[in-house]
């Protein structure tokens, strides 16, 4: 194991299609989109030691034209991660695990995810995971990490990771919401960490406004970001919009992951943010996961793509 400190690098690799692997290099995020094409696996191999992999928007239960086999594409994603030369320390799932919050959907998702060689899984719910009338199914299965609050934090290899929930208590016509209680908790949680601590924040809905008419943003995210601004390296990972969008603002890098299930239209194209049906030959190139790895002596951002085909 090479000598890895936070002064060195955290690498994130992006599998476009199959996922995204991110790299934080000397505090700077680099990402490589990987799709599932076999000839791109070399790109993943060159990234060094995987840190963690982000899976998002698996939508188990979905079975329409946009992807009649979401189980198959999740299985393929699991296979791709398991095929990495070195296994990530853990996996994060940024929500919409299920499509309709139904027990059988969660069962299937958990069964498929249990096939990951890397067995540590950290989750946040998407709005599709809390769409059951009692909003209880997700929490029964995944609520333990957060005492059923939905938000929690943990440390790994000198990096502080924060899971936030922004898919409940929506206001009408509104965006995602963090809420007072969670923002207060975030402030307390961050106060214990020095500004040199690399921070990774993950939540389902984007923590920045991508397209408000479709609710692609979080109404009070700015207040959370204000708390993060003093840190030298902040990486914000989201899902929800089923396509990669990136933004860098000061020391904060925002990144949304592809879905493993189906693509969605570009912002504002069509009546709403529903499934986008593309020719089947094209589908795999629009599905993906995101993986984060730790790299040494990496100072420049790297970007490349690998897909599910």
């Amino acid at each position: 194991m090479p000598d890895i400190s936070r002064r060195n690098t955290l690498a994130c690799m992006a599998f476009g299609g199959a996922g995204t692997l991110f790299a934080l290099s000397g505090g700077v995020l680099s990402s490589i989109d990987l799709v599932f094409a076999a000839d791109n696996r070399d790109a993943a191999a060159r990234l060094g030691t995987p840190f963690f992999v982000q899976i998002s928007d698996t939508h188990i239960g979905f079975a329409k034209d946009a992807n009649p086999d979401v189980k198959g594409s999740l299985a393929k994603s699991v296979e791709l991660i398991n095929g990495l030369p070195m296994q990530p320390d853990f996996i994060i799932h940024t929500g919409d695990i299920s499509h309709l919050s139904r027990p059988a959907e969660f069962d299937t998702a958990q069964q498929l995810l249990s096939g990951l060689k890397s067995s540590e899984l950290h989750t946040v719910p998407g709005e599709h995971d809390v769409a059951d009338a009692n909003q209880s199914e997700y929490f029964q299965r995944f609520g333990g990490a957060s005492n059923n609050r939905g938000y929690y934090s943990f440390d790994h290899r000198g990096v502080h990771l924060i899971a936030l929930i922004n898919v409940m208590n929506f206001k009408p016509a509104g965006l995602g919401i963090l809420g007072e209680e969670q923002l207060k908790w975030l402030e307390d949680d961050l106060s214990a960490h020095s500004s040199s601590t690399p921070i990774v924040v993950f939540a389902h809905m984007p923590l920045w406004s991508i397209y408000e008419p479709w609710g692609w943003g979080t109404g009070d995210a700015d207040r959370g970001m204000a708390l993060l601004r003093r840190f030298g390296s902040v990486t914000v990972l989201n899902g929800h919009i089923h396509q990669i969008v990136r933004k860098i603002e000061g020391n904060i890098t925002f990144h949304t992951a592809r879905s493993t299930a189906y693509p969605q239209p570009a912002p504002g194209i069509g009546p709403g943010p529903g499934p986008l049906t593309v020719p089947s030959a094209q589908l795999a190139s629009m599905l993906g996961i995101t993986s984060v790895s730790i790299m040494r002596d990496q100072t420049a951002a790297k970007l490349s793509d690998v897909t599910l085909i």
Binding site: L100, A131, A133, G272, G274
Partner: peptide, 22 residues
Amino acid sequence: FDGEPHTVTSLDGLFRSGALDT
């Protein structure tokens, strides 16, 4: 009638449909 699921969720909590598929 949409390909995307929706819910009917009252603001005061009186009624909640849960996810309605197509």
